[in-house]
C-alpha cells in the first residue's frame, strides 16, 4: 500500500525539522484573545477551529491576525508544551514571523502550491524549515478521514 506523497517548496521562516498530523484552517488565527496558550486551543468566537487544539500538530493556515500579543501567546504555548510541531502558512507578517521565531517551531511560507488546497486535516506532514520543503503524505482511507472528523 503506497501512500500519495506531495512535495511543496518554499522559503525558510524558522529552521529545523518536524513532522506530525496536519491541522488545516482557511481562516487566519488570532494569538492573544484568539487561542488559549495553556492548551493550544482556538477560542475565537466565530472561528471554524473554535475548541480545537493545535498542540503537537503541523498547523497549516493562511496567517496571523489580530493583537500584537500574537508572538507572546504562541511563545507561551512553547512553555506549556502546547505549541504546534511546525507551521506552514501563506502570508507573512510581523506577528507570525516573530511568533514563529520565539515558538522555535520549524516554519515555512511562500510555497509553490497553496498548502491550504493541497493539505487536509489528518494528512501526515514533514516540514524541513532550513530547506523550505514540506512533504505531505495523504491520508489513505476516506473512511478514516470521516472518523477523524466526527
Amino acid at each position: 500500500m503506497t501512500a500519495e506523497t506531495i512535495v511543496l517548496r518554499g522559503r525558510k521562516v524558522v529552521g529545523g525539522c518536524a513532522e506530525g498530523e496536519a491541522l488545516v484552517t482557511r481562516e487566519t488565527i488570532s494569538g492573544w484573545g484568539g487561542i488559549d496558550p495553556m492548551t493550544g486551543t482556538v477560542i475565537e468566537t466565530h472561528h471554524e477551529l473554535r475548541g480545537v487544539s493545535f498542540k503537537d500538530k503541523v498547523l497549516v493556515f493562511p496567517g496571523a491576525k489580530g493583537s500584537s500579543g500574537w508572538s507572546n501567546a504562541f511563545h507561551m504555548t512553547r512553555l506549556t508544551n502546547s505549541a504546534p510541531k511546525a507551521m506552514v502558512f501563506n502570508i507573512i507578517n510581523t506577528k507570525i514571523a516573530l511568533g514563529a521565531v520565539v515558538t522555535r517551531a520549524p516554519a515555512v511560507t511562500d510555497l509553490d502550491q497553496d498548502p491550504l488546497t493541497v493539505i487536509e486535516t489528518g494528512d501526515w506532514v514533514k516540514v524541513d524549515g532550513d530547506r523550505g520543503v514540506v512533504e505531505v503524505t495523504k491520508r489513505q482511507h476516506p473512511a478514516a478521514r470521516r472518523e477523524s472528523a466526527s
Binding site: S68, S71, N93, T94
Partner: peptide, 8 residues
C-alpha cells in the same frame, strides 16, 4: 510602525 510584539 509595524505591529511589533513583546520580544521585538
Amino acid at each position: 510602525t509595524n505591529t511589533e510584539g513583546r520580544e521585538s
